[in-house]
Amino acid sequence: MIALHQHTTTRGDCETLLAFVPAAPLYLFGRIEMTAEPRLMGRKDAAAYCGIAESTFSLWVATHKMPPCIPGTRKWDRRAIDAKLDDIGGLTPDDKEDPYDKWVRENSSETDLQKWRSERNAKRGK
């Protein structure tokens, strides 16, 4: 949902409605007002963003459920948190698996030839 601000201007005795314009970013008379949430946030804000306590957020960072803070700061990247939550929730595809390994896993059932060879080798004592 986009927030809208109503802007008016006053000239003399009359007041004129200029427009309803989006709140972020809002270009107004040569000046930029940014009302969007900042991308970086501290531990308290990051925990609130996730809907958990600060101590739980710290535990999740320590156990690698959440990304670490940006090196040299005490700030977390909102997008990194979103990506980690997507990963935990299963919203991202698992493209890390090698296509050949995936094929072997999916087709790991023994073929008739392999069964015959196994039985033959068992009879031979191999």
Rank of each mutant, 00 (worst) to 15 (best):
H5P: 03
H5S: 07
H5W: 13
H7R: 01
T8P: 05
T8S: 15
R11H: 15
R11C: 07
D13R: 10
E15D: 11
E15F: 02
L18D: 11
L18Q: 06
A23I: 00
A23C: 09
A24M: 01
L26T: 08
L26H: 13
Y27G: 15
F29A: 09
F29C: 02
G30F: 01
G30Y: 08
R31A: 12
I32F: 13
M34S: 13
T35F: 11
A36H: 01
A36C: 07
R39V: 09
R39C: 07
L40Q: 05
L40T: 00
M41Y: 05
G42A: 04
A48T: 07
Y49G: 05
I52Q: 04
A53Y: 05
E54P: 11
F57L: 04
S58I: 04
L59D: 14
L59H: 07
V61I: 06
A62T: 01
T63K: 11
P67W: 02
P68Y: 03
P68E: 09
C69D: 14
I70K: 06
I70P: 00
T73R: 07
T73Q: 03
R74S: 13
K75Y: 13
R78L: 07
R78V: 04
R79M: 13
R79Q: 11
A80N: 09
D82N: 10
D82R: 12
D82Q: 07
K84P: 04
D86I: 08
D87H: 14
D87Y: 13
I88K: 07
G89D: 15
G90M: 04
G90S: 00
L91F: 13
T92I: 09
D94K: 08
D95G: 02
K96G: 09
P99A: 02
Y100I: 14
Y100H: 10
W103N: 05
R105S: 01
R105H: 14
N107M: 01
E110P: 02
T111C: 02
T111D: 02
Q114D: 08
K115F: 08
K115A: 06
W116V: 10
S118C: 04
E119F: 01
R120G: 05
N121R: 14
A122T: 04
A122W: 08
K123Q: 12
G125R: 09
K126C: 09
K126Q: 14
